Amino acid sequence: MAAAAAAGAGPEMVRGQVFDVGPRYTNLSYIGEGAYGMVCSAYDNVNKVRVAIKKISPFEHQTYCQRTLREIKILLRFRHENIIGINDIIRAPTIEQMKDVYIVQDLMETDLYKLLKTQHLSNDHICYFLYQILRGLKYIHSANVLHRDLKPSNLLLNTTCDLKICDFGLARVADPDHDHTGFLTEYVATRWYRAPEIMLNSKGYTKSIDIWSVGCILAEMLSNRPIFPGKHYLDQLNHILGILGSPSQEDLNCIINLKARNYLLSLPHKNKVPWNRLFPNADSKALDLLDKMLTFNPHKRIEVEQALAHPYLEQYYDPSDEPIAEAPFKFDMELDDLPKEKLKELIFEETARFQPGYRS
Rank of each mutant, 00 (worst) to 15 (best):
Q132A: 05
K330M: 00
L76T: 15
C254M: 15
S122K: 10
K259I: 04
P319T: 01
H147Y: 05
D179K: 10
E322V: 04
R261I: 06
K73S: 05
N224T: 03
R277G: 05
V18Y: 14
V304W: 11
L112D: 04
P323K: 14
H310Y: 06
R301L: 02
D88A: 11
L134C: 10
G242A: 06
H269C: 10
G230L: 09
I31Q: 14
T94C: 07
H125C: 04
A7I: 12
L308E: 12
N154W: 05
P328I: 10
I256Y: 11
C161D: 07
P93N: 13
K285N: 00
A52C: 04
D100C: 14
A327Y: 15
V51G: 01
A6N: 15
N253S: 07
D149C: 03
F59E: 04
N224G: 08
P196E: 01
V39R: 05
G8I: 13
H147Q: 00
A92Y: 15
A325N: 14
D20I: 08
S41F: 09
K285M: 12
H180T: 08
L234Q: 01
L258P: 04
D332H: 10
H147N: 01
K138H: 12
F329G: 14
K342P: 14
K114W: 04
V46M: 11
V304G: 00
R261M: 08
P298V: 10
H299W: 10
S29T: 15
A143Y: 13
L150W: 03
A282T: 05
L265I: 13
F228G: 08
I72M: 04
D318S: 14
L28R: 08
W192R: 00
N154K: 01
T118G: 09
T26D: 11
H61P: 05
S57C: 11
K164F: 07
G230H: 13
N154P: 06
D111Q: 05
L163Q: 00
R353F: 13
R67T: 14
Q66K: 00
T118P: 01
Y139A: 10
Y128E: 06
Q62L: 01
G34S: 10
N158I: 00
Y43L: 08
K164L: 07
R135T: 14
K73D: 04
Y43A: 13
V18R: 14
E186Y: 08
V14E: 06
S122C: 03
I56R: 03
D88G: 13
W192P: 01
V39D: 05
E341C: 14
D337E: 00
G245V: 01
N45T: 06
K292L: 11
E81K: 01
S57P: 15
I256T: 10
G85E: 13
I31H: 13
Y317T: 12
K48I: 08
I243E: 05
Q306E: 12
M13R: 03
D44A: 07
L290H: 03
N238G: 11
L157Y: 06
S266R: 00
D179E: 02
N123V: 11
L313Q: 01
Y30Q: 08
I227H: 03
D177Y: 01
R191M: 04
S142Q: 11
Y316V: 08
I227W: 03
G242D: 02
A327K: 13
Y233F: 00
I140F: 00
P319N: 12
V145Y: 07
P298M: 12
Y312G: 04
Y36A: 10
A92R: 14
N271G: 13
E71R: 11
A195G: 07
R359E: 06
S266C: 00
D106G: 15
A189D: 05
L156T: 09
P229K: 05
I140S: 03
A219V: 03
Y193S: 02
F329S: 03
M333Q: 13
P311G: 13
A42P: 07
